[in-house]
Computed example of a mutant assay.
Amino acid sequence: MDPATIALALLSGALIGFVLGLVGGGGSILAVPLLVYVVGVASPHAAIGTAAVAVALNAAAGLAGHARAGNVKWPCALVFAGAGMLGAAGGAEIGKAIDGQALLAAFGALMIVVGTLMLRGRKGGANPDVRLTRESASYLFPRLAGYGLAVGLLAGFFGIGGGFLIVPGLIAATAMPIGIAVGTSLVVVTALGATTAGSYALSGYVDWPLVLVLAAGGVGGSVLGRLAGKRLAARKNLLERGFAAVVIAVGLFVTASAL
């Protein structure tokens, strides 16, 4: 990579990390457009594969703090992630078989849908004590596995973490509060990102030096994002709506450019 590409990749990684630290999610959906239109990755498939690695690394880094705080329902997360990995493996194979420009157009459409859903906000459930046990498995297991498979398919196809889908899926399946759903979702995001990344890596669609540069930028960006998030905590809803508007705008640009 030339110095200009390295600088753009660092800035892109910092922006992704900053958004993750500021609003607590959503930054990964910007990774593919940034890699294609800012860093200059020529292949949409390579951009998706590289972004998937970055997504998995970001989620794994954030998981430790939530686990220490007790915000992870591990049995629920493992069932959701297990089914999701099957879906992600299938989705990645489908995505690799589709024309790159068509895949970008579909990705842009997904961004528009995601941004619209983000504008509606997220509401948590009312069962903080939910647990996957022998007694509850008869109704919780199929719900977790069903939502996990569907979300994994989309995450693998588009090379995204899918947190914006996983969190509502966990809440719908278990009625857990949103704070616990966010922490639990990071287990799933890590698993789905790693599965998608592995599939794309086996096909030669991961730029490993670029992954390292993105990760380096992401570390600094996430620190700044968390600091800014603490200062602007009272305006979190406004920040999330502003970010949703940016996601919709970028989605429109990506779709128009691809078409």
Rank of each mutant, 00 (worst) to 15 (best):
A233M: 11
V113E: 12
A77R: 00
V250K: 00
R143V: 10
L259G: 07
L214M: 15
G121F: 15
A145E: 04
N58A: 14
P177Y: 07
S203H: 15
P44Q: 09
L212D: 05
A81H: 07
V206N: 03
L35H: 03
R122P: 02
A60H: 05
G204M: 11
I112D: 01
L119N: 13
S138D: 09
L78W: 04
A155G: 01
L132S: 01
L259W: 15
K123Q: 15
L259R: 13
A31I: 02
G204A: 09
F18D: 00
G65C: 10
G159Q: 02
T195H: 07
S185T: 00
V130S: 03
L119M: 14
A97E: 09
P142S: 07
A4N: 06
G125N: 08
H66W: 09
F107V: 09
A4L: 14
L224Q: 02
L8E: 05
A256H: 04
G146E: 07
V55L: 07
F253I: 10
S12D: 02
L149G: 02
Y205C: 01
A69K: 13
A4E: 12
T133C: 04
W208A: 14
A181Y: 06
L224Y: 07
V167P: 08
L210P: 03
M176W: 11
G221P: 09
T116M: 10
S222K: 08
G156I: 01
A173E: 08
V38N: 00
A42R: 15
G242F: 13
E93H: 08
P128S: 06
L227P: 00
L140D: 03
A77Q: 02
T50N: 04
A97H: 09
V38D: 00
A155Q: 02
L110F: 14
G115L: 00
A56G: 06
A56D: 07
G100W: 11
A9E: 09
G70H: 03
D99Q: 11
V36D: 01
E93R: 12
S185F: 00
G146Q: 09
I6R: 03
P177I: 08
A145M: 05
M176D: 00
A233S: 13
T133H: 05
A67H: 12
L153I: 07
A215F: 14
A88M: 07
L132F: 01
A258V: 05
W74R: 03
A46W: 05
R143E: 13
V38C: 04
P142T: 06
A97Q: 10
G183W: 01
T196F: 04
V23I: 15
